Lab assay of single mutants.
Amino acid sequence: VTLFVALYDYEARTEDDLSFHKGEKFQILNSSEGDWWEARSLTTGETGYIPSNYVAPV
């Protein structure tokens, strides 16, 4: 499993987005949709879409 870490804070803009804080780690569930990836936060357990340019591989 490839994990990603948040480089910046992000505040959700829609109900499908996932808010997160810098340093939070994610498991990517689906990265085939372009710039927005479906991810699960390893901190909160919540699932939603995150901007791929806000995260980097651990």
Rank of each mutant, 00 (worst) to 15 (best):
D35P: 10
K22V: 10
R40Y: 11
V55H: 01
V55C: 04
L42V: 09
A6P: 00
D9H: 06
P51I: 03
Y49C: 09
R40K: 13
V5G: 03
S19K: 04
W36V: 07
L3N: 06
V5I: 13
S52V: 09
E11L: 11
H21F: 13
K25W: 15
T44P: 01
F20E: 00
S19D: 05
F26R: 00
V1Q: 14
T2E: 13
Q27F: 14
D9K: 04
S41P: 01
S32F: 11
V55P: 01
R40Q: 10
T43Q: 10
Q27Y: 14
G48N: 01
V58Y: 12
G48A: 03
L29C: 07
S52R: 13
T14C: 14
E46L: 15
W36M: 13
D17M: 12
G23L: 03
E38F: 15
G45H: 08
E11H: 11
P51A: 04
L3D: 07
G34P: 14
T44D: 03
Y10H: 06
T47D: 04
L18W: 04
I28S: 02
E38S: 09
P51M: 07
T2P: 14
R13K: 13
R13Q: 15
S52Q: 07
D16I: 15
D35S: 10
Y8Q: 09
L7C: 08
D9P: 07
I50H: 00
P57N: 05
Y10E: 01
Y54S: 10
R40A: 05
F4L: 06
Q27N: 08
I28G: 01
Y49W: 14
K22G: 04
F4Q: 04
S32I: 11
G48F: 03
E15S: 13
V55N: 00
T2L: 14
L3T: 09
I50K: 00
S19P: 05
F26T: 00
T44V: 02
E11Y: 09
Y10V: 02
F20R: 00
A56E: 12
D16G: 15
W36H: 08
E46V: 10
Y10Q: 02
Y8I: 07
D35Q: 12
K25F: 15
T43H: 12
Y54G: 06
H21Q: 13
E11T: 12
L7E: 04
L18P: 01
Y8W: 14
T2F: 12
S41R: 14
S41G: 03
N30P: 05
T44Q: 03
D16E: 13
T44F: 03
F26E: 00
F26G: 00
Y49D: 03
G34R: 12
D9M: 04
A39P: 00
K25M: 15
A6G: 04
A39R: 00
N53I: 09
W36G: 03
S41K: 14
Y10N: 03
V5P: 00
A12I: 02
I50N: 00
G48C: 01
A12E: 03
Q27K: 09
G45T: 03
F20M: 09
G34C: 12
E11S: 11
I50Y: 00
E33I: 11
V1H: 15
T47C: 08
S31K: 12
A12G: 12
F4D: 01
K22A: 12
S32M: 13
G34I: 13
E46T: 08
L18N: 01
S32D: 11
S41A: 07
R40V: 10
E46R: 15
F26L: 09
K22M: 08
Y8N: 06
F26W: 01
L7D: 02
Y54L: 12
A39G: 06
G48L: 02
D35R: 08
D16A: 14
A12R: 08
E11G: 05
D9R: 04
A39N: 00
V5E: 11
V58A: 09
I50G: 00
A39Q: 00
E38Y: 15
K25I: 15
W36K: 12
F4S: 04
E46D: 10
E15K: 13
W36L: 09
D35C: 12
E33L: 14
H21C: 12
D35N: 10
Y8S: 07
A56G: 09
Y54C: 07
E24P: 00
L29Q: 05
V58P: 04
I28E: 01
F4G: 04
N53S: 14
A12V: 02
K22N: 04
E46M: 14
Y10P: 00
E11C: 11
E33P: 11
V58C: 10
N30R: 08
L42C: 12
N53C: 13
T43E: 13
V58S: 08
T2Q: 13
V55K: 00
N30V: 08
E46W: 08
V5K: 05
I28T: 02
T43C: 12
I28F: 04
G48M: 03
S52W: 09
G34V: 14
K25T: 12
H21L: 10
A12P: 05
N30G: 09
R40C: 07
V1T: 14
